[in-house]
């Protein structure tokens, strides 16, 4: 994983040791997972399926349990009850590293990249390609820059200067670098934590394109968001969490955009709110 053969990376294969899954195969399955912190129930009986080459959207308002859910999948927390199946085998992920080794990569919204570091240094941070032996062992800078450029080109980003600090890129592009990095290092399941929430409309659209690019390369994507308008165009499966429980799960085609928005925003409550807000206005 850490040392790449510089000639083997010019093809579309990923650098990690895991072979890609067949499209539609179940990459990850969660069965009746629960988690409590003290006497607070953060997650109760949540189940969902993530297939290779498909996008599973996990929706929920603040406090719905999205963060806890991601942290269990990415190995930060361990579930108290329930099963986590990766590629058909049950696993208990004890650390983020253990999750990564099984092909589950997480891109956190703000904690994905180091702004002052160059694009290529960010891309390979923690898994740098090296050459030379003994005390002369050093970074393979040329290969690192070339691979960074190639992998970002696959996402539709043209990096002219891999030396530019990543902080000078737009928020969407930084997400793309993190996504491209996860895929290059062999992710089969990619968890994206609110990748669009801090972005403007255009930037968010771009990130959706990057998600689609990851999906089309056979990765099972878990897209966490509180925005049903971002989830609907790209999702193949929609899971809504509410107060730590599964509120509903739909396949694409089983639910309309309006229905998704309605379910997501607490439906009746929002209508009530709209009604109240209208009262004050002249008719």
């Amino acid at each position: 994983m850490s040392t790449q053969d510089s000639t083997a990376t010019t093809t579309t294969t990923d650098a990690g040791g895991l072979p890609p899954l067949e499209r539609g195969a179940v990459a990850l399955e969660v069965r009746n997972v629960s988690k409590h912190f003290g006497n607070v129930v953060a997650l109760k009986d949540v189940s969902c399926v993530v297939e290779a080459g498909k996008v599973t959207c996990v929706l929920g308002d603040n406090g719905a349990g999205k963060s806890t859910f991601i942290k269990i999948l990415s190995g930060v927390h361990q579930q108290d009850e329930g099963e986590l199946l990766i590629n058909g085998h049950e696993h208990r992920l004890t650390s983020p590293r253990a999750a990564r080794e099984r092909g589950v990569a997480t891109v956190f919204q703000d904690l994905a990249t180091v702004p002052l570091m160059s694009v290529w240094r960010n891309f390979f941070l923690g898994s740098e390609p090296q050459k030379g032996v003994g005390p002369l062992r050093r970074l393979d800078r040329a290969a690192a820059k070339r691979i960074t450029r190639e992998e970002l080109a696959k996402m539709g980003i043209d990096v002219r200067d891999p030396e530019q600090p990543i902080g000078t890129m737009s928020g969407g592009e930084r997400q793309a670098v993190a996504i491209a990095r996860a895929m290059y290092f062999g992710a089969r399941v990619l968890i994206l934590d609110e990748p669009t929430s801090a972005l403007g409309v255009k930037q968010a659209g771009r990130v959706l394109r990057y998600i689609a690019a990851a999906r089309d390369r056979g990765v099972g994507v878990i897209f966490i968001t509180h925005n049903p308008h971002h989830a609907f165009p790209i999702g193949d499966r929609f899971v809504i969490l509410n107060r730590g429980r599964l509120k509903g799960s739909w396949q694409k085609g089983e639910i309309t955009r309006d229905e998704l928005v309605h379910q997501m925003s607490g439906g009746a409550e929002l209508e009530q709110l709209a009604h109240e807000l209208q009262k004050g206005e002249p008719a």
């Binding site: 983020p96 590293r97 994905a112 180091v114 570091m117 941070l125 923690g126």
Partner: peptide, 18 residues
């Protein structure tokens, strides 16, 4: 590379396995 990483953003560096 790790030195730049831990100084620039400790959590990001930790997340990617530094």
């Amino acid at each position: 590379n790790w030195v730049y990483g831990v100084g620039g953003d400790l959590e990001a560096a930790r997340n990617v396995g530094v």
